[in-house]
């Protein structure tokens, strides 16, 4: 029944273009992009991720380069590339907040019912949201990682230590820093979809990335040796490092692969819950 043009109640409105068929992924993608860019919390979380991560990296490297007794010979043995990025340790937690809130805010505000009434096929909604969150987290993560490295490495160069993107494995580590930050957001997004609760998702994300790593230190040494490298932070952390202790650490990309398995499991469970549980 076409009522658009003859309607009196809605007669003041322009007639809609003919329906283009099945509402699908493209529309969901545009919709999710509008959602993420139109709330302040996105700006706040991403803005503080940028400031905190770069700030800590830069301050720490400036201090270590200018006010430490370590001699050049010893510093040459250290993973200075990883050091230029170490603000990521806190930055990952802010990315957890961003990733979790991208989905839990749908539940805390009740707008998920509006979203899913407009597009009741949940798989494209979930996929579009995941893609938008991953893309945004990746872009911001890479910006953070590159800026941290470029500023911090200049302190070391001024001390006569050669450190640039062309140093061995430096490019891998700097790109890896952004990937790791995006991975943290994706993991939290999955947790958010499972738990549907902002505080719960953030707590469990921080727990997985941070607390578990600390707790593992209290295990007996011979357990630690086998377990530590598989923990999310220790495995994922290899991708933004240039040195890996054989036996104790996974290699850069294997480690990142393990980290992404954690993320994938969370996202798949989250997708299952999103699709099947009452909204």
């Amino acid at each position: 029944m076409t009522t658009a043009t003859t309607s009196s109640a809605l007669g003041g409105l322009t007639a809609l273009p003919p329906a283009s068929g099945r509402a699908g992924f493209g529309g969901a993608l545009r919709s999710e992009w509008t959602k993420i860019r139109s709330v302040r919390s996105t700006m706040w979380t991403l803005g503080s991720a940028v400031v905190v991560t770069i700030g800590i990296s830069v301050l720490g490297n400036w201090g270590r380069a200018n006010h430490s007794g370590a001699n050049a010979a010893r510093l040459a043995q250290e993973d200075l590339t990883q050091r230029t990025l170490f603000g990521i340790i806190l930055g990952q937690l802010i990315m957890v907040v961003f990733g979790a809130m991208a989905i839990t805010s749908e539940y805390s505000t009740g707008m998920v019912r509006t979203s899913l009434t407009a597009q009741p096929r949940r798989a494209p909604v979930f996929a579009a949201k995941l893609l938008v969150v991953s893309f945004v987290a990746f872009v911001i993560g890479e910006v953070i990682s590159f800026v941290s490295f470029l500023i911090s490495s200049s302190f070391w160069r001024s001390k006569g230590i050669s450190l640039s993107l062309s140093s061995p494995h430096a490019m891998q580590a700097v790109i890896g820093g952004g990937l790791y930050l995006a991975g943290s957001a994706i993991l939290a997004f999955g947790l958010g979809a499972i738990l549907r609760h902002t505080a719960g998702a953030i707590t469990s994300g921080v727990g997985l990335l941070f607390v578990v790593t600390i707790l593992a230190n209290f295990l007996p040494d011979n357990w630690q040796q086998h377990l530590d490298k598989w923990l999310p932070f220790n495995s994922g952390g290899q991708v933004w490092a240039t040195q890996h202790v054989p036996g104790n650490d996974l290699s850069a990309w294997t480690g990142f692969g393990v980290f992404m398995i954690y993320g994938a499991v969370a996202v798949l469970l989250g997708a299952y819950v999103f699709r099947n549980r009452d909204a």
């Binding site: 273009p17 139109s38 509006t114 009434t117 407009a118």
Partner: peptide, 26 residues
């Protein structure tokens, strides 16, 4: 549905825009 199925931090315009975009409403 319930009146408050809306994100309080989003403008009224953007709330309707993201709905419109799901299926080509200009």
């Amino acid at each position: 549905l319930e009146a408050r199925a809306v994100h309080p931090g989003r403008t009224a315009f953007n709330h309707l825009l993201y709905l419109a975009q799901t299926q080509g409403v200009p």
